[in-house]
Design a protein around this nucleic acid. Structure first.
Lengths: 105, 105
DNA sequence: CGGCTTGTACGAACACTGTCGTACTAGACG
DNA sequence: CGTCTAGTACGACAGTGTTCGTACAAGCCG
């Protein structure tokens, strides 16, 4: 079984987290996960980019500590590291999420 | 008297704000302003970069709506647009500020 | 086994960003 | 008026980030 490296909460860098969240496509991923799209394969998000680019964005999020990825067969299940983020940067993720969805009908 | 353009709160973009805050030097500026260094000239921040680079960073912050700049003679007085930011992206700036100062002895 | 799905690796192209130095402008001050 | 200070404009440069296509690997399923 392949494994993926994840940073520990004490190694999170504000720089990496803010840079990661500054990209619209990555915010799209984070918003989907926050809305309950947990445990979905990367490609099932229907992102407006190619496969390689998708891989790239998910890796950036993982290496910043924002998401957790684990293999299930050939697919990868993604979830938000809500608790770890809240412990390290309190209020940051909720604020971004709240601001990122101005059009919630 | 020279004037500087500032975006209106309804024109703030989360993208621009997060990108602006993702840079360490710009976070340094924002933290100083938050600590009460209001009304200080740009160059008096003692940033570890040249004059042109300093100008660049202050402009990025202004164009994202994070700071307000107004001329006083040849100098520029800077201040945080705390209220405007709070209205548009509630909780975002406080969260970043709190996370950006882990070493407050 | 052979094919299908899901994701990765790698290289290339391209744009953007941060940085600097130099030359310049606007205002203050003598 | 001359000089000083604070900042801007511009061009250049290196580094980085996003994107893609193609080729490849790892598991599932028939």
């Amino acid at each position: 079984m392949r494994t993926l490296e994840h940073p520990k909460p004490e190694d999170f860098s504000l720089d990496a987290v803010l840079s990661a969240l500054a990209d619209p496509i990555r915010r799209m991923i984070v918003c989907r996960l926050a809305e309950g799209y947990h445990e979905q394969a990367c490609l099932s998000f229907g992102l407006p980019v190619g496969k390689s680019t998708s891989t790239h964005h998910f890796r950036v999020l993982r290496e910043a500590g924002i998401i957790e990825q684990r293999y299930q067969g050939t697919a990868i299940l993604n979830s938000l590291r809500t608790a770890d983020l809240e412990a390290r940067f309190p209020g940051l993720l909720p604020a971004v999420l709240a601001s990122a969805q101005p059009a919630t009908p």
